[in-house]
Design a binder for these strands. Structure first.
Length: 124
DNA sequence: GGGTTGACCTGTG
DNA sequence: ACACAGGCCAACC
């Protein structure tokens, strides 16, 4: 096993992560840990954050729909990144109360979404 | 090779 | 609800 195979694996992992993030429906959010699970990376929440940090500008995936398990944006409050993510969330109808999103209300629960409410999303 | 870092998570008080 | 500690893990230096 040379460093080359490890490198290919790392790139493949990034792609898996991006693929999962791309599936988060508009108007919903998912946590880093949840994305990690779906990308077959148990306990890989930090890895997800790293992949998003390295996200090429050409990849147009809804990175803003990924928040931490506390329902909070994982950028320093008030920073440019924080502001942009917050704005994008508000734009699609996701509500922040005291800087937090209710996962109960806006969390992405794939099975339910696909079986019951495929094209709808919380309106308030 | 080993210490540091960070777009994280969970339990505990 | 909030802060803190400990755990986690890959990338980086």
């Amino acid at each position: 096993m040379s460093s080359k195979s490890r490198s290919r694996t790392a790139a493949a992992i990034d792609q898996r992560i991006y693929a999962v993030v791309a599936k988060i429906p508009r108007g919903r959010v998912a946590t880093y840990g949840w994305i990690a699970e779906r990308a077959k990376l148990p306990r890989g929440a930090r890895r997800v954050g790293r992949a998003l940090g390295a996200l090429p500008a050409s990849k147009r995936i809804p990175w803003h729909r990924v928040i931490n398990a506390q329902g909070r944006i994982s950028f320093p409050e008030g920073s440019a990144h924080w502001s942009e993510q917050r704005q994008r969330l508000l734009t699609e109808g996701i509500v922040l109360k005291n800087g937090r999103v209710s996962l109960k209300q806006f969390g992405w629960h794939e099975s339910l979404d696909e079986l019951l409410w495929r094209d709808s999303f919380p309106t308030s």
